Amino acid sequence: MRAFFIALCVACLFALPISAQTSIGFGGVSHDANQPIEVTSDSLSVDQTTGNAVFSGNVIVIQGDLRMAAGEVSVIYGTGDTQQIQQVLATGGVLLTRGQDAAEGAQAEYSVETGHVFLSGDVLVTQGRTTIAGDRLNIDLNTGNGTVEGRVRTILQPAGQ
């Protein structure tokens, strides 16, 4: 009877649905969104009516310990104050790094005001020997917490490996 009960418990455990969401840490410490944002690219175009800027070709964005590389980055300014950066939108194969952590995906949205990054499109997060893949990644740069959503895949490394 005891063996049957253990087998039943194990069967129930494997019958549970796999979560479509996994929490991760990203970067560890709080990010200072008030630091200047440095952008390097092959070209720049500016919309004179909105003041928004589009950087193209080998774009690198740096703000403190946050680094983003992409094919194209749009910088969106808040209304009324052309000095206040509201959002940074990146496309064309995005690589985001902070400390020892890295994430890549097809596009990214960085809300400077809230300190949140949303990365989507075949996301891959690398933290040391651990990799996590999914459809979307949400990161709160203020806390360093992140969530991978969608069809989440990872390989768990046993201790000593």
Results as ranks from 00 to 15, higher is better:
residue 107 Q to E: 14
residue 84 Q to N: 14
residue 96 L to W: 02
residue 5 F to E: 00
residue 153 R to C: 00
residue 64 G to D: 15
residue 49 T to Q: 14
residue 76 I to V: 15
residue 116 H to Y: 09
residue 128 G to K: 09
residue 7 A to P: 00
residue 16 L to S: 03
residue 52 N to A: 01
residue 4 F to P: 00
residue 51 G to Q: 03
residue 129 R to I: 07
residue 1 M to F: 08
residue 161 Q to M: 12
residue 136 R to E: 13
residue 32 D to I: 03
residue 6 I to T: 02
residue 44 L to D: 01
residue 55 F to M: 04
residue 140 D to I: 04
residue 150 G to Y: 09
residue 52 N to L: 04
residue 33 A to W: 00
residue 15 A to D: 03
residue 81 D to C: 06
residue 83 Q to C: 02
residue 94 V to S: 06
residue 3 A to M: 09
residue 108 A to R: 05
residue 144 G to K: 03
residue 94 V to I: 07
residue 1 M to C: 05
residue 2 R to C: 03
residue 93 G to E: 11
residue 88 V to F: 13
residue 65 D to Q: 10
residue 100 Q to K: 13
residue 137 L to T: 05
residue 112 V to L: 06
residue 47 D to V: 02
residue 139 I to S: 07
residue 4 F to V: 15
residue 149 E to F: 03
residue 104 E to F: 05
residue 146 G to C: 04
residue 62 I to F: 02
residue 10 V to S: 13
residue 123 V to C: 11
residue 56 S to A: 10
residue 84 Q to V: 03
residue 82 T to A: 07
residue 108 A to D: 09
residue 85 I to M: 15
residue 26 F to E: 07
residue 17 P to S: 04
residue 35 Q to I: 03
residue 83 Q to S: 12
residue 143 T to L: 06
residue 98 R to E: 06
residue 67 R to F: 15
residue 102 A to T: 12
residue 78 G to C: 02
residue 105 G to C: 09
residue 59 V to W: 08
residue 88 V to S: 08
residue 9 C to P: 00
residue 124 L to K: 13
residue 59 V to R: 10
residue 119 L to R: 11
residue 118 F to T: 13
residue 117 V to Q: 00
residue 93 G to F: 07
residue 67 R to Y: 13
residue 67 R to V: 07
residue 37 I to Y: 10
residue 111 S to W: 06
residue 41 S to P: 10
residue 151 R to W: 00
residue 87 Q to D: 14
residue 49 T to E: 12
residue 121 G to R: 06
residue 46 V to S: 11
residue 72 E to P: 06
residue 87 Q to F: 00
residue 120 S to M: 13
residue 132 I to F: 05
residue 123 V to I: 11
residue 87 Q to T: 06
residue 23 S to L: 01
residue 119 L to P: 15
residue 18 I to M: 09
residue 103 A to G: 15
residue 20 A to G: 15
residue 107 Q to K: 13
residue 49 T to M: 10
residue 120 S to F: 05
residue 64 G to H: 07
residue 59 V to N: 13
residue 129 R to E: 15
residue 157 Q to D: 13
residue 37 I to F: 04
residue 18 I to C: 04
residue 62 I to G: 00
residue 146 G to I: 05
residue 78 G to E: 14
residue 25 G to S: 10
residue 74 S to P: 01
residue 148 V to C: 01
residue 21 Q to T: 03
residue 83 Q to I: 02
residue 125 V to C: 08
residue 132 I to G: 08
residue 78 G to D: 12
residue 3 A to E: 12
residue 40 T to L: 12
residue 21 Q to N: 04
residue 93 G to I: 05
residue 74 S to Q: 15
residue 51 G to H: 02
residue 15 A to M: 11
residue 140 D to P: 03
residue 108 A to N: 10
residue 42 D to E: 12
residue 128 G to E: 10
residue 114 T to W: 04
residue 110 Y to V: 01
residue 63 Q to G: 05
residue 41 S to R: 07
residue 158 P to K: 15
residue 130 T to K: 14
residue 53 A to G: 06
residue 54 V to P: 01
residue 160 G to P: 05
